[in-house]
């Protein structure tokens, strides 16, 4: 797979992940900054590195499974591996401007 093809597929996966919302914040996990990385390996394996807004969140397993299922719905994705990490820990500053605006969050220093 070429680099361009891998990047294109990663973008499609990113788009599919926008269909997965964080239930508490009510916004998609991509724009909330919960998806840290999407990598597509040569055999069309999507490797997603993601986090949750708080460690121990009861929604964790659902978010992880939801991300896996959404990515798997992308045509030509053969396998999905979702890795959960808390390094670095998520902060509201990781949201996109649109997500911040949606939640009424103002930019500021630190957390």
């Amino acid at each position: 797979m070429t680099v361009e093809a891998a990047e294109g597929l990663a973008e499609k996966v990113r788009g599919a992940l926008r269909g997965v919302i964080d239930p508490e914040l009510g916004y998609n996990i991509v724009d909330l900054g919960l998806v840290y990385d999407i990598e597509v390996a040569g055999d069309n394996v999507a490797i997603i590195t993601m986090t949750t807004t708080t460690r121990g969140c009861p929604a964790t397993s659902y978010l992880k499974d939801g991300a896996r299922d959404a990515a798997w719905s992308v045509p030509s994705v053969e396998f999905v591996d979702v890795k959960l990490t808390y390094e670095p820990p998520w902060t509201p500053q990781m949201m996109t401007a649109e997500a911040k605006q949606h939640l009424g969050i103002t930019d500021g220093d630190g957390w």
Binding site: P23, G26, Y62, G66, A67, S73
Partner: peptide
């Protein structure tokens, strides 16, 4: 929150879901 998780958690990523 718990009702949302119970009902909509299992279909997250498969179908559109409401917010809590």
């Amino acid at each position: 929150f718990l009702t949302w998780l119970e009902c909509y958690g299992p279909v997250l990523g498969k179908a559109p879901t409401p917010r809590v």
